[in-house]
């Protein structure tokens, strides 16, 4: 049952990821990316981590994708569509990409982790325990990330300000 669900989510995720890369219109790509991120959130639930699934839906699908769609709205899409298909071929880049892809997939397929799975029933990781670990063991990274967010916010405001 769980394998069936995994296959459904994985197939939809890979299909929509391919759609992100191949669609000509950036709006369609954004919608496809949204689908892909929702599938990954479902996979997080399959891995018994509902907190991360909720965070994924809130931040990625909610905030980040709305930001993307807003920027696409502000920019000129017609011009973007024309520019996505240059006449010159990029066979060298494609070759490099192909070699890289085959290499990565081989490394994954030949890894010794194959039959390794959780056999006993494992409960969901509670939000409470995540919060406890986050605010004790990982307190310093948490502070660093909050400073980073502040810097990003100030930077984004300054950069988009009309001079």
């Amino acid at each position: 049952m769980e394998k069936l669900l995994f296959i459904i989510f994985a197939v939809v995720a890979i299909g929509s990821a391919l759609a992100v890369v191949t669609f000509r219109n950036p709006v369609h790509s954004a919608i496809a990316l949204m689908t892909c991120l929702l599938q990954v959130a479902a996979l997080f639930i399959l891995m018994r981590s509902p907190f991360l699934a909720v965070v994924q839906v809130f931040i990625y699908v909610g905030a980040v994708m709305v930001l993307f769609l807003f920027v696409v709205l502000v920019l000129d899409i017609k011009k973007a569509i024309i520019q996505t298909f240059p006449a010159k071929s990029r066979s060298v880049v494609f070759l490099i990409f192909l070699v890289l892809a085959i290499e990565v997939e081989l490394v994954v397929l030949l890894s010794p982790l194959k039959g390794f799975a959780v056999t006993e029933a494992v409960g969901e990781s509670k939000v409470e325990s995540i919060g406890k670990v986050l605010f004790t063991k990982y307190l310093f990274p948490f502070e660093v990330v909050s400073v980073l967010l502040l810097v990003a916010m100030v930077g984004a405001i300054i950069m988009t300000k009309r001079r």
Binding site: E2, L43, E105, V108, K114, G115, F116, V118, T119
Partner: peptide, 11 residues
């Protein structure tokens, strides 16, 4: 249960 290699392959 889903083996971990499936997740790594998907990723």
């Amino acid at each position: 249960m889903v083996p971990i290699s499936w997740y790594i392959a998907l990723s």
